[in-house]
Nucleic acid binder design. Structure first.
Length: 304
DNA sequence: GGAATAACCTGGATGC
DNA sequence: TGCATCCAGGTTATTC
């Protein structure tokens, strides 16, 4: 599933191909891929054709391509991959992808013509054209952006733990006032972004913290450990190209990542914990699953 | 206002 | 073999 590392791999793949490119044509095949766009497919197409893409930026799981100003309006093409979305680079005229929803034909001054394909099996992902608004802290909007702006629909999303402008103090303060389970807080994109079910389970396993521990019950050292392990697991996954299951996530060239081989808890129900050998258990949590080691991650072991 | 839950969606796995 | 059901999970609207 596309979480921060997967989205960052896509962003990094898109950046050299689309920065400076001009959109020549847009084909919306399925308007369900525009659920975050305020307008019709035809309007989306008309508004995008002729625009020049400046760069590729990301905050958490949101990706956006800032566009040259048009009529005094500063805006971007925003993408969210949802659970199964893919952004693929293809040669012009390439055959339709399975579950292809939208295709952009772009022309780059150095690389020539290229197709940018948005494919999405489960249609939880979407594209949208959205206005850019100033960041409250005046810092760059996210990775790949040197401008202090984010799309309006990304305003409420917190910075991610790999963002140089991420505030450890604000994260600590948020945990200290929430009685919810720490895993729920890690998944709350308004507290910290980019973490999904896989990396929440992995970071909590590494930090030896039970996913249902109340956030405010964590000691200062435990919070430090969680945040440190979140960063370690995200950076390691990024280095390995992300986590792929059943080809649900691929980079812009359609290639899978390798991090699934490095998972210690997620998806390993019944298999021995790599640390103590006790079988990993799976429990229902927030309409999904939590995987943890019942020996290493005890509900009472929150101090230190 | 904060927290918890349901709904959205499709395809693969599983059970009968 | 074919059909029905379950499961995966990010975001948001709704409910408590």
């Amino acid at each position: 599933m596309p979480e921060l590392p997967e989205v960052e791999v896509v962003r990094a793949g898109l950046e050299p191909a689309v920065s400076g490119a001009t959109v020549r044509a847009v084909d919306v095949l399925d308007e369900r891929a525009l659920t975050r766009h305020l307008g019709t497919g035809a309007e989306f197409e008309a508004r995008l054709v002729g625009r020049r893409i400046r760069s590729a930026a990301r905050r958490g799981k949101f990706l956006w391509l800032p566009l040259d100003e048009h009529g005094g309006v500063d805006e971007a093409l925003v993408a969210h991959l949802g659970m199964s979305g893919q952004l693929l680079l293809r040669a012009p005229g390439a055959p339709r992808e399975r579950h292809e929803r939208i295709r952009l034909e772009v022309e780059h001054p150095h690389h020539g013509e290229l197709s940018v394909v948005f494919a999405d099996q489960r249609t939880f992902g979407s594209l949208a054209i959205d206005a850019l608004v100033a960041t409250p802290d005046g810092r760059p909007g996210g990775r790949g952006s040197d401008r202090p702006a984010v799309p309006s629909q990304v305003q409420h999303i917190a910075r991610d733990p790999l963002d140089p402008a991420f505030s450890d103090a604000a994260f600590r303060a948020a945990l200290a006032r929430k009685a919810s389970a720490v895993k729920r807080v890690l998944l709350d994109q308004t507290v910290t972004s980019g973490i999904g079910n896989i990396y929440a389970d992995e970071a909590l396993w590494a930090a030896r913290i039970h996913p249902e521990t109340p956030a405010l019950a964590l000691s200062s050292r435990a919070v430090t450990r969680v945040l440190g392990e979140v960063r370690v697991v995200l950076e390691k996954a990024l280095a390995e190209g992300g986590t792929s299951f059943d080809a649900q996530y691929v980079n812009v060239n359609g290639q899978a990542g390798y991090f699934a081989h490095s998972l210690n808890a997620y998806g390993r129900t019944g298999q021995p914990c790599p640390r103590c050998g006790r079988p990993i258990v799976r429990v229902g949590f927030m309409n999904r699953s939590s995987h943890y080691c019942p020996r290493c991650q005890r509900l009472t072991a929150v101090a230190g």
